[in-house]
């Protein structure tokens, strides 16, 4: 294990870095600085990455996704296990008094006063697992029932993922977003890579992800 992190070299830019970047870099990741984050843009093979997402399974680090936790008793009814789409983001109910806002839904937290909010963007890492074999990939390290009849699009499940506490959201028919503690990132990356490789899958860059959304999800 390298101890380089103890003596960081000063640079003109100091981007936030997902803990999955080192593992991805060993797999040939090409990173770019976007919105203050070092983002895994691709793995140098856009056609291969798109094919993996289309034919088997691709997984991508999306840790820069904004995540905010809101603690408040909402006026509306608490519907466990069902997230609500807010633009390109999601509002995910965890408990009656605890809600997780993802992506564009975070902007809705800006105007909230009188409740406790907590930015979890750096605390929770995130992976998108997409493709026809995505469910089969999860079946190798996660006991959650992901059948479409049980977990339709928008289904949200707090639970154990690869034996670590996490959250799982089905954000499209063959596309899942999984959130877990950033400290477990390298381990989870390895677990997912191992499971996906046996199904013909591979890591993909963030640039390949828009193509994994169906028309319904884009609308």
């Amino acid at each position: 294990m390298s101890l380089d992190f103890l003596s960081p070299r000063p640079t003109a830019q100091a981007p936030a870095r997902s803990p999955m970047v080192p593992g991805a870099a060993r797999a040939g990741a090409v990173t770019e600085i976007r919105d203050g984050w070092e983002v895994i843009a691709s793995f140098g093979d856009p056609a291969g990455e798109a094919a993996a997402c289309r034919e088997s399974v691709g997984f991508a680090d999306v840790s820069p996704l904004p995540k905010v936790e809101v603690f408040a008793r909402p006026g509306g009814e608490f519907v466990a296990g069902t997230a609500t789409r807010v633009g390109e983001g999601w509002r995910c109910p965890v408990r009656p008094e605890r809600t997780l806002l993802l992506g564009e839904a975070v902007t809705g937290a800006a105007g909230i006063t009188g409740v406790r909010t907590c930015d979890l963007t750096g605390t929770l890492a995130a992976l998108v697992v997409a493709g026809p074999a995505a469910r089969e990939t999860f079946a190798r390290f996660c006991a959650l029932d992901l059948r479409e009849a049980v977990l339709p699009v928008g289904g949200f499940r707090p639970g154990s993922v690869a034996r670590t506490p996490g959250f799982l959201l089905r954000d499209d028919r063959d596309r899942f977003l999984v959130l877990f503690g950033a400290a477990f990132s390298e381990y989870v990356w390895e677990v997912v890579a191992d499971a996906a490789a046996r199904l013909g899958g591979r890591p993909v860059g963030a640039d390949s992800l828009p193509a994994t959304k169906t028309e319904a999800a884009r609308a």
Binding site: V94, R98, S160, P165
Partner: peptide
């Protein structure tokens, strides 16, 4: 306590 999930 639902340690790996909602924390309740």
């Amino acid at each position: 306590v639902h340690r790996s999930g909602c924390g309740a």
